[in-house]
Design a protein around this nucleic acid. Structure first.
Ligand SMILES: NC(=O)c1ccc[n+]([C@@H]2O[C@H](COP(=O)([O-])OP(=O)(O)OC[C@H]3O[C@@H](n4cnc5c(N)ncnc54)[C@H](O)[C@@H]3O)[C@@H](O)[C@H]2O)c1
Ligand SMILES: NC(=O)c1ccc[n+]([C@@H]2O[C@H](COP(=O)([O-])OP(=O)(O)OC[C@H]3O[C@@H](n4cnc5c(N)ncnc54)[C@H](O)[C@@H]3O)[C@@H](O)[C@H]2O)c1
Lengths: 213, 213
DNA sequence: TTGAGATTGTGAAATTAATCACAAGGGGAG
DNA sequence: CTCCCCTTGTGATTAATTTCACAATCTCAA
């Protein structure tokens, strides 16, 4: 089955990080082999959904036995692009930007925050041994120097479109946008939106339904 | 059409916050009437999807004319439970918890962070005029006193399950969980997961595909 | 008051996603 | 080496969601 031609539900990819997490746990517990049933239970999906999800990327299991934990981990890393380190530059060294810069969950997944950028002069300079906040004018130079691929947008929403354009000009291939606005960028640029308000308002809706507003 | 009986796609609700945002903009610009085509364009959905989404909640537009901005805003507020203020208690006054506590986007949607809780004694006390960090033992008392409904979990993942149980015991009706773990709670408790790693790994996958890993 | 023009609301059709159910192997006991 | 048991991989089926296309009906101008 030629991997490049298969199409699969968009939701499939969003389940892979969850598979990755439970596999990491099994690995820690020195469990070498796991069945789709056991794993699916832990993730909260059906076994057939798990098997179907994996099947889009080849025949990754062992019939009659289950899935080899270590092997499946390396395959999932490959699928999610975790087989090599990806470097992030955070634009907007404010409350959220600084929280993300100090979030260990990123490094655990091969994602390294390597620089921050801000227009506020007062924020420029080293934060610690590894991290420095640069002025925006350094965007292209530091991207090149540090090998940054992904720009994280944690600037106020009014600045987001302009900053996105600067990031594209500076050569970033992908944007991870936390500002609550839709960005206009060239089609070859990958954009991932992270909209926290959608989550809490979904919750609020359920709450309103349950309580009768 | 009896509102309570209609079923609709889960994704419908997650589009309402986006509709709300563009309507707020129209409102600011003193635009009173807007067509599904114009609005859909701005949000990034098809006009028929927008109309279908709204139709699940009644006949909210005016045939031949469009949607009345002010009216639709009040209806969407109702649907999303924004017609009254909801109070949040943040458990875990760390990097992310503090960022959320200072996030103006919440208040703009009728969501008010009214207290924080932490086990770390060094964090206890007032942050500013409005906000205080309490010890976890105060959870039930302060929930009652301040009218907190939603517990925001921004604690390390190893603590999340235990903290969720404490929040339920303390009488919270809903949990907004930022820790990367599935929570075991009674079925009547509403849980919304916010998993940032899913987003960035989805992006990483697209990047790997595009660049050939 | 009437008719032309516009845009909604919505069944039906098309598309996409999830589940089912079982044939196709692989493992291991004897 | 063989046979039985077990679990995967996957077509077929069912379910969910989106898109289509047009009848319904509202506005506005004359
Ligand atoms: N704080 C949160 O918890 C949270 C949650 C979800 C989304 N967001 C979104 O993230 C963004 C940042 O929020 P925040 O709370 O961290 O705000 P903040 O004000 O704390 O930080 C914004 C930072 O961006 C910098 N900045 C402003 N204009 C800039 C520009 N043109 N180029 C580079 N840097 C610029 C500011 O100097 C500041 O350091 C906002 O769009 C917000 O809606 C925040
Ligand atoms: N930092 C981020 O940008 C980010 C992003 C996404 C998700 N998260 C998740 O959010 C959670 C918090 O992350 P963080 O970076 O803010 O960590 P942090 O270490 O800065 O903050 C954690 C806070 O929780 C407190 N705490 C620990 N155990 C507790 C308990 N049992 N009860 C109450 N409070 C307790 C600690 O004292 C600390 O103040 C983690 O689960 C993390 O995976 C963080």
């Amino acid at each position: 089955m030629p991997e490049g031609l298969v199409t699969f539900p968009k939701a499939t990819i969003s389940r892979f990080p969850l598979y990755f997490r439970v596999l990491t746990e099994y690995n820690h517990q020195n469990i070498a082999l796991v069945s789709s049933e056991e794993m699916a239970q832990k993730v909260g999906v059906t076994p057939s959904q798990l098997r179907k999800d994996l099947s889009y990327f080849g025949s990754l299991g062992i019939r009659g036995a289950g899935y080899d934990v270590a092997y499946l981990l390396t395959k999932i890393k490959e699928i999610l692009g975790m087989d090599r380190k990806r470097r992030l530059g955070i634009i907007g060294a404010g409350k959220l930007g600084m929280a993300l810069a100090g979030y260990s969950g990123l490094k655990q997944h091969g994602l390294e925050v390597s620089a921050l950028f801000d227009t506020d002069q007062a924020k420029w300079g080293a934060i610690n041994e590894q991290l420095t906040v640069f002025p925006l004018s350094e965007l292209a130079v530091q991207r090149e120097r540090l090998g940054l691929e992904i720009a994280v947008l944690t600037v106020p929403k009014v600045a987001a479109q302009r900053v996105a354009e600067l990031a594209v000009e500076a050569g970033f291939a992908a944007l991870w946008n936390f500002a609550p606005v839709r960005l206009e960028v060239p089609p070859e640029i990958i954009v991932q939106y992270e909209d926290i308000v959608v989550g809490i308002l979904t919750l609020s809706h359920h709450l309103a339904r349950k309580l009768g507003t």
